[in-house]
């Protein structure tokens, strides 16, 4: 069993600020982290590794600094790590990204057939959730997105059963390998690497792959050239000009503030007040 995990290094979006004048992203001091959703994917792959003695390969496309993300994957237990890095990939949108990644996976597959590909449900910088489906479609793998649980895996029969989150419920799906799975957050709890693992990860020689290593011959399919979409404008959200009416009372006591607010709400916005429909209390009476 060979499992490949796609991870991405992303700027910690919680710490990103927008330049007040130029409206560009200010990256000063914003740390790069492993996309949090990908860690769930990695852990899920490692659990299968533990159970089925699978081999886990981590794949990351990004600049040379993304090495740190792969070292982390190695420390947690990935056996191999490949950094797909080439200036030719710059400017890629999701279609061009999935092209490059699937080309790399094909090469990995030639060395050791890939049975499962794992990815996070989306990244926190792009939030598109498109690259996973793109890879599966290109590699003709079964696609299982938003997986909240892996119910069973039968390596002999090459079958996997999962819970897939869908609108209004959970689909229990059975499919054939090879498959690509994007996992939901909270599906597992990340392990804590041992010091031995940390040292091994630090010493591990990463595979650095250029586009040629991934056997990408057609440069029109990758990077800016291979991207059907383009950003035409970047701007900050327009600030609303409203400023909250701050409720104040003479006493400043919570109960007076609350009463004033509720009275205001009921008199100024009767339409909203009408929307308040208390559910019956547990004893059956309603308010």
């Amino acid at each position: 069993m060979h499992i490949l995990v796609c991870i991405k290094q992303v700027p910690d979006s919680a710490q990103i600020r927008v330049h007040p004048v130029t409206n560009t992203i200010m990256r000063q001091g914003v740390p790069a982290i492993v996309n949090p959703y990908d860690l769930y994917a990695l852990e899920e792959a490692l659990r299968l590794k533990d159970r089925y003695r699978a081999r886990v390969t981590a794949l990351c496309m990004g600049p040379p600094q993304a090495e740190a993300a792969l070292r982390k994957a190695l420390a947690f237990g990935a056996d191999e790590a490949i950094l797909l890095t080439d200036r030719a990939f710059a400017g890629a949108d999701t279609l061009a990204t999935s092209y490059a990644l699937s080309a790399a996976i094909r090469q990995v597959h030639k060395g050791l057939p890939v049975d499962l590909v794992f990815a996070g449900k989306q990244t926190i910088d792009g939030d598109t959730a498109q690259v996973g489906p793109g890879i599966a479609t290109r590699l003709d793998m079964q696609l299982l997105t938003y997986v909240s649980k892996i119910v069973s895996l039968d390596p002999a029969a090459r079958e996997i059963v999962v819970h897939r989150r869908s609108e209004g419920g959970v689909q229990v799906l059975k499919t054939q390998l090879p498959a690509l799975i994007t996992v939901l957050e909270g599906i597992n709890e990340m392990r804590f690497a041992s010091l031995t693992d940390m040292l091994r990860a630090e010493r591990h020689a990463l595979a650095l792959w250029s586009k040629d290593d991934a056997h990408i011959d057609d440069a029109t399919k990758i990077g800016l050239k291979g991207s059907p979409t383009a950003v035409s404008k970047v701007f900050a959200p327009t600030p609303t000009n409203r400023r909250a009416e701050i409720i104040e009372t003479q006493s400043g006591q919570p109960i007076d503030l609350a009463a004033t607010l509720v009275a205001k709400l009921f008199s100024n916005r009767p339409d909203v007040a009408l929307a308040i429909n208390p559910s019956p209390t547990p004893d059956g009476s309603s308010l």
């Binding site: 804590f192 690497a193 041992s194 010091l195 031995t196 940390m198």
Partner: peptide, 9 residues
Amino acid sequence: RTDRENGSV
């Protein structure tokens, strides 16, 4: 001794 498993060096 570190806080990790096998944490002594």
